[in-house]
């Protein structure tokens, strides 16, 4: 598979009513095979070639963080606390009957997947985290605030080692129709804003103390040149989770599933088998 593969995208959606019916959580679904839950990063659910690739062997369920689903922006205000967010995700997974699924989470999604796996040790059969947030080191602080307050043109260089990759550039492409651009920008900005509720100023909610509770076999992948979540944090996950493998990628930034698509897909497939 190349970096410029044609994306099939989600095939159907489920709207799952959660949080005492206050939130309708959209879950995008594609593929066939055993269930796999994909937890998106702070930038929102971007259905890229990696997710498409997973859908070749698995039924991928990709829930959207409340507030990030177009047309339902204020759902974020229904969620006050981070612990509530974890309960909401668990409720959604339970209602979809996804206990025992494989979990794959990228960045913020990795943090959420880890916390779910820590809170409910039997929830996932395996756990894959791609440059997950959730931990902090004084000598390697995650640069979330810097990313959020950077000029838009600087963001590709912040999250990619090589922002010139066509797939990297495609991620930041705005609609061709100028009339659609303001709405698209507003949606992108708001999505980051919703994620900021759990990421600002640090994506750190005490996960370090809960890592020991994770019993699912875990794979952590990280780009060595990650400027957002320093790769040294991979070792912290490895030390904290009892059954955890780590792989670091050379010449790779934060969005490793785009920058090292083939390698990441192969490693994830090999791990979850």
């Amino acid at each position: 598979m190349s970096n410029t593969a044609i994306i099939t995208g989600p095939q159907r959606d489920e709207m799952v009513s959660v949080w005492n019916d206050q939130i309708k959580m959209r879950v995008r679904i594609a593929g066939k095979g055993p269930p796999l839950v994909y937890f998106h990063p702070a930038a929102g659910l971007y259905w890229d070639a990696f997710v498409d690739g997973l859908a070749q062997d698995y039924t991928v369920y990709a829930p959207e963080l409340p507030g990030t689903t177009p047309g339902d922006a204020y759902a974020i205000y229904k969620v006050d606390e981070y612990c509530d967010l974890i309960l909401i995700y668990e409720e959604m997974l339970r209602k979809l009957g996804l206990k025992g699924a494989v979990a794959v989470g990228q960045s913020m999604g990795g943090m959420i997947a880890c916390d779910l796996a820590a809170a409910y040790p039997d929830l996932f059969s395996k756990l894959v985290c791609l440059a997950p947030s959730g931990l902090w080191r004084d000598d390697a602080p995650p640069a979330v605030a810097e990313l959020y307050s950077s000029a838009p043109e600087k963001i590709p260089g912040f999250v990619f080692h090589d922002p010139s990759l066509p797939a990297a550039q495609a991620m930041f492409t705005l609609p061709e129709n100028p009339a659609e651009i303001p709405k698209a920008i507003a949606q992108n900005v708001w999505t980051l804003g919703c994620a900021g509720k759990w990421m600002w100023p640090f994506p750190e909610h005490g996960l370090r103390g809960r890592l020991y509770r994770i019993t699912a076999p875990t794979l952590v992948l990280w780009g060595k040149q990650d400027r957002l979540m320093p790769a040294v944090l991979a070792g912290e996950f490895e030390a904290g989770i009892r059954n955890c493998q780590v792989k670091l990628y050379d010449d790779c930034g934060h969005v490793l599933q785009i920058e090292k698509l083939d390698q990441a897909l192969a490693d994830v497939r090999g791990f979850i088998g």
Partner: peptide, 16 residues
């Protein structure tokens, strides 16, 4: 400019 409206500070309709 990017520090005057960090994502989430302004309502989605305001951004648009």
């Amino acid at each position: 400019m990017s520090k005057l409206s960090i994502p989430g500070y302004m309502d989605i309709n305001g951004v648009e």
